[in-house]
Each structure stands twice: as C-alpha cells, then as structure tokens.
C-alpha cells in the first residue's frame, strides 16, 4: 500500500489512545457487550493455548522418541514388516524438493510482482495475472498434484521421470514434484514482493528517473535492493509451505521408502527417481499409512515442526529488523 496515496496514513497502533472518559468504564457497558469483550479475550487466549498445546505436545513426544541416529540412518523394513531405521532419505528429499521449488518459484514470483507493480499494462492483463495468482493460492494441493501427474505422464516428458519396463512414462520424480511445489510457493513470494514494492515511496523511483535511469535499471538498482527483505520473507514463507506439503509428495514422488534413483547419470538419475519427504514419512508411519510405527512418526513430525519454528523465527527476525532499519514500513498487519 502506497502510504502517499492516502490521507489516512496514520498507523493505528501509533494513534493516541482515547482518554478515559464517560463510557470507557466497563461497568457501564451493556451485558451483551461485556460478554463479547470476554469472548474476544477468550478467543485470543484460546488461540495461544492451542498453539502452545501443539508445540508442547509435539516437543514432549519428540524428545521422548527422537534419537540422534534417526537423523543419519536410512529407513528400512524390519522383519515384522514395520518401518525401522531413521529418516535420512526423507530429510534429503525435503531438502531437494525445497531447492527445486524455490529455484522455480523465486524468479517467477519476483518477476510477476515487478511486472504488476511497475508496468501492469494493459490493465485487464494485469488483473488477469493478479487474479490467477490468487487462484493458484486457493487451489488445493491435491489438485495441483494430479495436474502435475497428468503433465509429467505425457510421453515427451519421459526424460524428466522414470519409465516402467513396458515403456510407460510414470510421471513421478523429484523434478515433477519440485516443479509442482513451485506453484504452492509462488503466491506467498509474489504477495511479499508486491507489498514491498508498493511500499517503496514514489520519490525513490522519481529520483532514479530524474537521473536518466530507465525503468528496468531503476528496478534492478533501486527497487529490488530495497525490497530484498520482503523477498527473503516471501521465500521463507514459500519454503515453509513446501516442506509442510504432503499431497504433492504422495502423488508425484510416490512416497517410496527410500530415494530410488532412475538411470545411471549421477545427479540426474536422483532427480528423475522417486523418494519421500518428512511429511510423507510421518503420514506413512502414522496409523493412517502402512508403516505402523507411530514413534518414528512422532520423531519425524518433531523435526518437521522444528524446521517450521525455525522458519517462523527467521520471518519474525527479518520483518522486525526491517522495520527498525528502514524508513518505510513494507506491509502492515500480520
């Protein structure tokens, strides 16, 4: 939101609190109003309690079941059919998928945001792009997953995934899953970059234009550097969306027990092969899957939650440091 376009640019948090006059004492409120006030407190504290309960519960279970060797051993099937061993392969799978997803979503998201804010002509096209990113944000991940399957199953996509003995393209690989992951990381990246660009004061652009810079040079040398923190925030949000996603991995990565390369070329064979991530490891080892070893599921879920907590902390740090260091506040609210 460009603060200069509106006469109402006062941040509400900075607005002076009204003085305690008549009617500000709760005792004079109507009963219904008092009930609503209490309910608002209860709802706010309830949210905190639920979050706290989830974190504490997962923490207790995690400390109970997480052993360091779980992180460095590969999963295997024990004699009784249950999954044992650790979750090294899912950890690697999560990392690889995140890398592919961000590598695609970052340029697309930033370019879209720059185009919308800085060019955005013709306006009907800009509206279309904007609304289509909103639609991508609202699309269920399971639909994205099977759309990816429909694409990567096409025979000319064969080199990007593995092929069965009968020559049918399976359409399931790290490349396929990572590409579709970029679709769920795109909306937060786009939104963060767009909000940042919109918060850059107009005089920064005008100063650059006055020096004879072209639009694109202004974008590269002035605007993008000043929204770096927003891009970082968006990327972090995108990463936490990717590592938390299950449906795409279940369908497009086959959620195999171990990462299974396809082919013989060192890195490409890994990317063409199937594998699993922490989320599918949890899913498969919970009573909902076949693994039936909930202890390992708890341990992996704890690690997953630690990642999410870390990413949230990073987002908090970035935005608070940004608010301190820069004159303009990029985006407000949550």
């Amino acid at each position: 939101m460009n603060a200069f376009a509106s006469p109402f640019s006062t941040e509400p948090t900075e607005a002076p609190r009204p003085s305690r006059g008549r009617g500000s004492s709760m005792r004079e409120w109507r009963l219904l109003d008092r009930a609503i006030y209490l309910a608002a407190w209860a709802a706010g504290l309830g949210l905190c309690l639920v979050t706290g309960a989830i974190v504490v519960y997962m923490g207790v279970r995690g400390i109970q079941y997480l052993r360091p060797e779980l992180l460095v051993t590969r999963p295997r099937i024990a004699e009784d059919g249950a999954v044992s061993g650790g979750f090294l392969d899912p950890l690697i799978g999560t990392a690889v998928l995140t890398a592919i997803g961000v590598a695609i979503a970052l340029p697309v998201g930033v370019c879209s945001a720059v185009w919308i804010v800085e060019y955005g002509r013709p306006s009907w096209l800009a509206r279309m792009v904007e609304s289509s990113i909103e639609i991508v944000a609202g699309t269920p991940d399971i639909v994205i997953a099977i759309f990816g399957l429909a694409i990567f199953e096409l025979s000319f996509m064969g080199p990007l995934s593995s092929t069965s003995e009968t020559g049918v393209v399976l359409g399931r690989s790290f490349i396929a899953a990572g590409t579709m992951m970029s679709m769920i990381a795109l909306p937060p990246l786009y939104a963060a970059t767009r909000d940042g660009l919109q918060a850059v004061p107009a005089h920064m652009r005008e100063a650059a234009f006055a020096l004879g810079k072209t639009r694109i040079a202004t974008i590269r040398r002035v605007l993008l550097p000043s929204v770096r923190t927003n891009i970082a925030t968006g990327t972090t949000l995108g990463i936490s969306r990717i590592i938390g996603d299950t449906a795409i991995v279940l369908i497009l990565l086959a959620a195999s027990l171990r990462n299974e390369p396809a082919g013989s070329i060192p890195i490409l064979s890994f990317l063409r092969g199937t594998g699993s991530t922490l989320t599918t490891y949890v899913y498969d080892n919970s009573p909902a899957g076949e693994g039936k070893s909930p202890n390992n599921a708890y341990a992996a879920a704890f690690v997953l939650l630690l990642f999410i907590l870390l990413l949230n902390w990073v987002v908090g740090r970035i935005s608070s440091a940004h608010a301190r260091n820069s004159g303009f506040d990029a985006g407000r609210g949550l």
Binding site: L47, C48, V50, T51, I54, V55, Y57, M58, L237, S240, R241, I243, G244, D245, T246, T279, V282, Y283, S286, P287, A288, P294, A297, Y298, A301, L304, L305, I308, L309, L311, N312, V315, G316, L334
Partner: peptide, 19 residues
C-alpha cells in the same frame, strides 16, 4: 502465534488427530 498456527503442516495436525 497466529503465523505459527497457520504454518503448522497439515500432517502434524493429522498425526495429533489420529493418535
């Protein structure tokens, strides 16, 4: 807190739910 609650992966909610 709200940001964390929004970013807890669904599989963790599912795990707590089912167990």
């Amino acid at each position: 807190v709200v940001r964390l609650l929004a970013s807890v992966p669904s599989v963790i909610y599912g795990l707590i739910g089912i167990l």
